[in-house]
Deep mutational scan, measured.
Amino acid sequence: FHVTIHVGDITFHIHGVSEEEVKKLEELVRRGADWREIKKTIEEIEK
């Protein structure tokens, strides 16, 4: 999957994300995680 996440003024683009990881990111966004937490999760996914 290709994912784009907008957190305030920050936009993250992630490529090659599995469905499971998409759900993890959706959950973070849904519970209102700040951009640092989302960035950390994205960095883990990209490894």
Results as ranks from 00 to 15, higher is better:
Phe1Leu: 15
Phe1Tyr: 09
Phe1His: 11
Phe1Ser: 11
His2Thr: 15
His2Ile: 15
His2Cys: 10
Val3Asn: 02
Val3Leu: 07
Val3Lys: 04
Val3Pro: 01
Val3Phe: 05
Val3Ser: 03
Thr4Phe: 03
Thr4Ser: 08
Thr4Val: 11
Ile5Pro: 00
Ile5Asn: 00
Ile5Phe: 02
Ile5Glu: 00
Ile5Met: 04
Ile5Gln: 00
Ile5Arg: 00
Ile5Cys: 02
Ile5Thr: 00
His6Gln: 13
His6Val: 14
His6Trp: 05
His6Asp: 04
His6Asn: 08
His6Arg: 13
His6Gly: 03
His6Leu: 09
Val7Ile: 13
Val7Tyr: 15
Val7Asn: 05
Val7Ala: 06
Val7Asp: 05
Val7Ser: 07
Val7Met: 10
Val7His: 10
Val7Phe: 12
Gly8Glu: 03
Gly8Ser: 03
Gly8Cys: 04
Asp9Ala: 06
Asp9Trp: 07
Asp9Arg: 06
Asp9Pro: 11
Asp9Thr: 09
Ile10Cys: 10
Ile10Glu: 09
Thr11Lys: 05
Thr11Phe: 10
Phe12Ala: 02
Phe12Asn: 00
Phe12Met: 07
Phe12Ile: 13
Phe12Gly: 00
Phe12Val: 12
Phe12Asp: 00
His13Arg: 02
His13Trp: 03
His13Gly: 01
His13Ser: 03
Ile14Asp: 00
Ile14Thr: 03
His15Met: 08
His15Trp: 11
His15Asn: 05
His15Ile: 07
His15Gln: 07
His15Tyr: 15
His15Cys: 06
Gly16Gln: 04
Gly16Glu: 06
Gly16Leu: 14
Gly16Ser: 11
Gly16Arg: 03
Gly16Met: 14
Val17Ala: 09
Val17Ser: 05
Val17Met: 10
Val17Thr: 04
Val17Trp: 08
Val17Lys: 03
Val17Gln: 04
Ser18Lys: 13
Ser18Val: 04
Ser18Glu: 06
Ser18Ile: 05
Ser18Phe: 05
Ser18Gln: 07
Glu19Asp: 08
Glu19Gly: 11
Glu19Pro: 08
Glu19Leu: 14
Glu19Met: 13
Glu20Gln: 11
Glu20Leu: 11
Glu20Ile: 14
Glu20Met: 13
Glu21Lys: 06
Glu21Thr: 14
Val22Asn: 05
Val22Gln: 06
Val22Ala: 13
Val22Ser: 05
Lys23His: 12
Lys23Ala: 11
Lys23Met: 13
Lys23Val: 11
Lys23Asp: 08
Lys24Pro: 01
Lys24Thr: 12
Lys24Trp: 10
Lys24Cys: 05
Leu25Thr: 00
Leu25Gly: 00
Leu25Phe: 07
Leu25Cys: 01
Leu25Arg: 00
Glu26Ser: 09
Glu26Gly: 08
Glu26Met: 15
Glu26Asn: 10
Glu27Asn: 10
Glu27Ala: 10
Glu27Trp: 04
Leu28Lys: 03
Leu28His: 02
Leu28Ala: 07
Leu28Cys: 02
Val29Ser: 04
Arg30Gln: 13
Arg30Cys: 05
Arg30Ala: 14
Arg30Pro: 00
Arg31Trp: 05
Arg31Ile: 11
Arg31Met: 10
Gly32Tyr: 03
Gly32Leu: 08
Gly32His: 08
Gly32Met: 06
Gly32Lys: 07
Gly32Asp: 06
Ala33Asn: 03
Ala33Thr: 06
Ala33Trp: 00
Ala33Ser: 07
Ala33Lys: 03
Ala33Cys: 07
Ala33Gly: 06
Asp34Phe: 02
Asp34Gln: 03
Asp34Tyr: 01
Asp34Thr: 06
Asp34His: 07
Trp35Phe: 11
Trp35Thr: 09
Trp35His: 10
Trp35Ile: 15
Trp35Gly: 06
Trp35Asn: 05
Arg36Phe: 14
Arg36Met: 15
Arg36Tyr: 13
Arg36Ile: 15
Arg36Asn: 14
Glu37Asp: 12
Glu37Ala: 02
Glu37Val: 05
Ile38Thr: 01
Ile38Met: 03
Ile38Asn: 00
Ile38Asp: 01
Ile38His: 01
Ile38Tyr: 01
Lys39Gln: 15
Lys40Tyr: 06
Lys40Trp: 06
Lys40Ala: 13
Lys40Leu: 11
Thr41Ser: 09
Thr41Asn: 08
Thr41Ala: 10
Thr41Gly: 07
Thr41Glu: 07
Thr41Lys: 08
Ile42Trp: 04
Ile42Leu: 12
Ile42Tyr: 02
Ile42Gln: 01
Glu43Pro: 01
Glu43Arg: 07
Glu43Val: 10
Glu43His: 10
Glu43Trp: 05
Glu44Lys: 10
Glu44Ala: 11
Glu44Gln: 12
Glu44Asp: 13
Glu44Thr: 10
Glu44Leu: 11
Glu44His: 12
Glu44Met: 12
Ile45Phe: 12
Ile45Val: 06
Ile45Cys: 05
Ile45Lys: 03
Glu46Thr: 15
Glu46His: 11
Glu46Leu: 15
Glu46Asn: 12
Lys47Ala: 13
Lys47Thr: 11
Lys47Gly: 11
Lys47His: 14
Lys47Arg: 13
